[in-house]
Design a protein around this nucleic acid. Structure first.
Lengths: 118, 118
DNA sequence: TCAATAACTCACCCCAAAGTGAGTCGCATA
DNA sequence: TATGCGACTCACTTTGGGGTGAGTTATTGA
């Protein structure tokens, strides 16, 4: 953790220091969309087909699932192949190093949530 | 990480295993609300006064800031005192052990976001 | 011939989260 | 007397994320 910023010394410098440390917004917005981390986790477990994901999450809508998969790919959390010689066409997603690192942190969040904290 | 669940064996058991591992939703919803983790971080840096927080985040609305502070307290991430003998009334927030543990994970997210990932 | 499957896309609607602006309450300083 | 501050609360409006249902393309099995 960073050095403390005293409330009594809220000058321009400290405002900047604080603002810098608060720049976690992008990452939070990255992981916040509904189903996204769950879908990424499924991909890491080799459950990546559209129809299979719909079985795991029966209440997700087609549109949102497609959007989430698109985001996951464009953000480099997973890559997408077309599986050749499959009919009807099939796709395959594979988690990248970046995506795997993110999943580990998400796993830590999960553990934090399960802990009692009396 | 958990044992892999093969796509080829998507039976009821594996569906449950997957669903269990995907139960990170509550935690994600806990940390997702706008400004929340940023406010919690500020509290950990001893910047906890309503008016000071508004200086750090000039675009936050009064209502949302009050809501976030309320959530942070009811979820046990921080506790709230009334500072006695202050006029006009002042409050003080202090991060709990639970809140501090959460902030460490959020910090890891921040680091993940800053990393290059070519 | 018809239905089904895989993996989507599109147009539309709804609601909850967030923003806006004003009000409150007790005190204190000009 | 009245204006301001600190820490909110309330009523109202807006926005955009996510849900709904239908359509698409190519192919294959009944």
């Amino acid at each position: 953790m960073a050095t403390k910023v005293k409330a009594s010394s809220m000058n321009a410098h400290n405002l900047r220091v604080l603002a810098d440390h608060c720049q976690v917004s992008e990452v939070l917005e990255l992981i916040s969309p509904r189903w996204k981390m769950q879908v990424l986790f499924c991909i890491s477990q080799e459950v990546y087909q559209f129809s299979q994901l719909k079985k795991v999450f029966p209440t997700i809508s087609d549109q949102v699932l497609a959007r989430r998969l698109g985001e996951i790919v464009t953000e480099g959390l997973a890559i997408k192949y077309n599986v050749p010689d499959t009919v009807p066409c099939q796709v395959k997603y594979e988690v990248t190093e970046k995506g795997a690192a993110l999943l580990e942190i998400v796993q830590a969040l999960h553990q934090w949530g399960k802990k009692g904290w009396e």
